[in-house]
Design a protein around this nucleic acid. Sequence first.
DNA 1: GTGAAAGCGCTAACAA
DNA 2: TTGTTAGCGCTTTCAC
Lengths: 339, 339
Amino acid sequence: MDNITLKMLAKELNLSTAAISKALRDSHEISFETKRRVQELATRLNYIPNAYAGSLRRKKSKTIAVVLPEVADSFFSLAINGIEAVAEEKGYHVLIYLTHEHFDREQAILKNFQNGRVDGVLMSLTAETDSYQHICDLSSKQIPLVFFDRICEVKDTAKITTNDFESSYLATKHLIDCGCRRVAILSISNHLSISNKRLEGYEQALKAHLPDQPPVNVVFCGNDPDTNSLFLKKIMGEEERPDGIIATVEKLTTSIYLTCKELALSIPEDVKVVSFSNNSSAPILNPSLTTITQPAFEMGRAAANTLFKALEKKNGILMNENLVIPSELIVRGSTVAGA
Amino acid sequence: MDNITLKMLAKELNLSTAAISKALRDSHEISFETKRRVQELATRLNYIPNAYAGSLRRKKSKTIAVVLPEVADSFFSLAINGIEAVAEEKGYHVLIYLTHEHFDREQAILKNFQNGRVDGVLMSLTAETDSYQHICDLSSKQIPLVFFDRICEVKDTAKITTNDFESSYLATKHLIDCGCRRVAILSISNHLSISNKRLEGYEQALKAHLPDQPPVNVVFCGNDPDTNSLFLKKIMGEEERPDGIIATVEKLTTSIYLTCKELALSIPEDVKVVSFSNNSSAPILNPSLTTITQPAFEMGRAAANTLFKALEKKNGILMNENLVIPSELIVRGSTVAGA
DNA sequence: GTGAAAGCGCTAACAA
DNA sequence: TTGTTAGCGCTTTCAC
């Protein structure tokens, strides 16, 4: 069976396609009676407008893109939920693209957005991204872009973040308060502003609360859990091993726990751990995990809302704008025994 | 700056749009020299074809839809990864839709696919879905549909599942082997074939290995963790409470663990637990969690591959076809102390 | 090997 | 209030 088109409805009712089009969009130019007849036939024949004919004509696709490093991560999963909630409410479609932390993927994906495929973009940078031409190219096509979490600081647009500096400071101070004297931090990038902020928070806290201690201990981790575990085993096997660890990304937690187990280091007695994590099983880990819990759903929702605000205006240009939604330190057993 | 179109390239090179179009698609009708000139100009001007003009003309969108109950679940996150890996390789775009387990959402979403928006659909049913007209409507428009995980048994199309019956049987037998005599199973639906299969496996295992025991104990849970916990607290507080629990979905694990803690029931001494779960933190839970781990990534990949196989044929009709990728029982501390 | 022209299904000026 | 017309940017016969 062939699809119903406007033309077919028009022929059936002896009207022009224009009249049908207007009637279906409830235009005031069309008489009530005509609207009713059109509506009736459309529902009876189950008319569904062609998805792309209108997009082509109006140069609007009612579609947004979400560009993420990965999705097997509680933060991004929750963020997608927040984004989808808003998109569905606004009647928009959501294209999803995963960079797997590869800069060249990110470039290729954005390039694809330059010709009408999407009305706007929500994105979180890869850990590799350290140049921004592809982002400027997109902006030059007037396609609004909202960053969330892993933002691009130098680009003038809307950015949704959490209080990374403060959270990291707080996490570090918490470890120091719990008695740690050799705190290490695990990072995944030295380009991402979010990583840098977390490192700064850590460094400032060390400086403020442990003035005469040895310098900072930043460990850069990668994408592969096995390599990370190997790294960790080496570090945790040393004489002067850390007695406190901050994981700046959720997925490093498993490596830390397993490495400690393997080395017979007890958490929190020998090492205390706090992770930036939205993993809902944090309370039932062994021991339960002290987390910096980010407002992932809210950040996704806020990013989408900001984007739609721009899309609903005529000139959809986004001002430089920073929305910061705070994270929360939740103290559990990995830093305080029995908590 | 305005977007580059075929027409502009044509004017620039004193060629017709037809020639440009063919040249860019490397048609044999076009001379090598012309192709070279066209290519050169296109890359120099950074020509990117309009996303929807071609879709409209060719009635192919190079886009697929993924319809999921939710995404904050390791299984679906991993499945998305598998799907995206294939889609990216094939040059397809991926629209994502979440039903949040609501049947009416599912209907509305599928309806939207009836007019060219997508070339094919991958989907996992909601827990509510118990009628299939919306699916038949989609099929009547010749849009290929592949089910994965939560399949629709009555519909003739490709279906990717894991061995739910056997896995559940195995999980139940494992609990019995570990000494459990009152095994309960937590389910989320009495419509889904996947749930029914898991219940059957459980029932058969009980029948086979505990012939003279009290009847099955099936607990239906919902979407809200608090309600579920309340439910569980009641059940686990009873005299004849279960000494073994099977969670047929990952998210119920947290409720189980927390309820046991609250009631001072020790896992695995008082209650043994096995969950259908892909949560990567299973090994570091307290105690580590015995899981039926599903091949989530592989299922997503297989579903996508099956769909693309249909899309690449002329008549893209999918035969009734069942691909079963086995799950794995991974025994850990929640059923065997110290494992 | 290249071009002219029709048209995918819809919308938006502009007429009537 | 309704119709006519001219595209949106591209592909695809069919001429030449």
